[in-house]
């Protein structure tokens, strides 16, 4: 599977008469993990949904090879979005069920084993804890085996320890793919990202990427990252000061339903 980057050109989004972003251009490098940070409501999730083809782009979204991204994307939300009427194994193979192709169940079992849920293949989601459910969601995302993975705050609903474990796991399992992850957690971004972008302003703009050395997952408390941590926090503070709280639109479509 060759790595494919993401190229966004001239992306424009208007929400209730408010210009969220205009003529936004960004390239996400192939095979790297990019994290998107910024004040809430600035349009991080909207940008992600636009790349996923779930929102009209008003511009061009394509692969770095110039081809369309449709069919090359796997999407993971902060909610696990498991279908409650399907067993864990069938949730993992949901993609082939929807596409009417044969499910590769041995592969699904192998993935469940990698996320530590080999014993739960026949369970229904209602019997699992939040962390287990999100691990199933991660297995489902990997089962799609797409070169581009979009993640919208994938671990934010989990407790700290579970979050750490899942971050390690996903860094390991997603290595080599182009990952764009929306997060509000600078710590998480420093652990997982090769590139960190801060989205700020109205219309929103992407600042220059913060380049993080070494391979994820990292220990953000390690010496070299302290300076980057400071730099990132400074950028976030500046971004927050630049946004006008009373005019922030609720850019996340499902914000009300999010846990």
């Amino acid at each position: 599977m060759p790595a494919v980057g993401i190229r966004v050109v001239g992306a424009t989004l208007t929400y209730r008469g408010d210009i969220v972003f205009r003529d936004l251009a960004v390239d996400f490098d192939p095979g790297l993990t990019s994290c998107l940070l910024g004040p809430s409501g600035v349009g991080k999730s909207s940008l992600l949904r636009m790349i996923a083809g779930l929102a009209p782009s008003g511009g061009r979204v394509m692969g770095s090879d110039g081809g369309p991204l449709a069919g090359r994307i796997a999407y993971m939300d902060q909610r696990d979005l498991l279908l409650p009427w399907l067993r864990v194994i069938d949730n993992v193979t949901l993609g082939s069920r929807l596409r009417g192709t044969r499910a590769d169940r041995p592969a699904a079992r192998a993935l469940l084993e990698r996320v530590g849920l080999q014993g739960n293949a026949a369970d229904y989601p209602r019997t699992l804890s939040g962390g287990m459910r999100q691990r199933v969601a991660l297995a489902r995302t990997l089962m799609e085996d797409r070169p581009v993975v979009l993640m919208d705050e994938p671990f934010s609903a989990l407790d700290a320890l579970t979050r750490l474990r899942l971050q390690d796991l996903s860094a390991e399992l997603l290595a080599g793919r182009t990952v764009v992850m929306v997060t509000h957690d600078p710590f998480e971004a420093l652990r997982l990202a090769d590139r960190i972008y801060v989205l700020s302003g109205r219309p929103a703009e992407l600042g220059e990427a913060l380049l993080i050395p070494n391979y994820p997952p990292r220990d953000p408390t390690a010496g070299g990252l302290a300076a980057l941590h400071h730099e990132l926090l400074d950028r976030l503070k500046a971004a927050d000061a630049g946004s006008e709280p009373e005019r922030r639109p609720a850019a996340r479509r499902h914000a009300a339903g999010a846990p």
Partner: peptide, 15 residues
Amino acid sequence: EPGWLDLARTMTAGR
């Protein structure tokens, strides 16, 4: 649940 439909849309996009 709109999230389920979004997920399904990315899985079946272009088919």
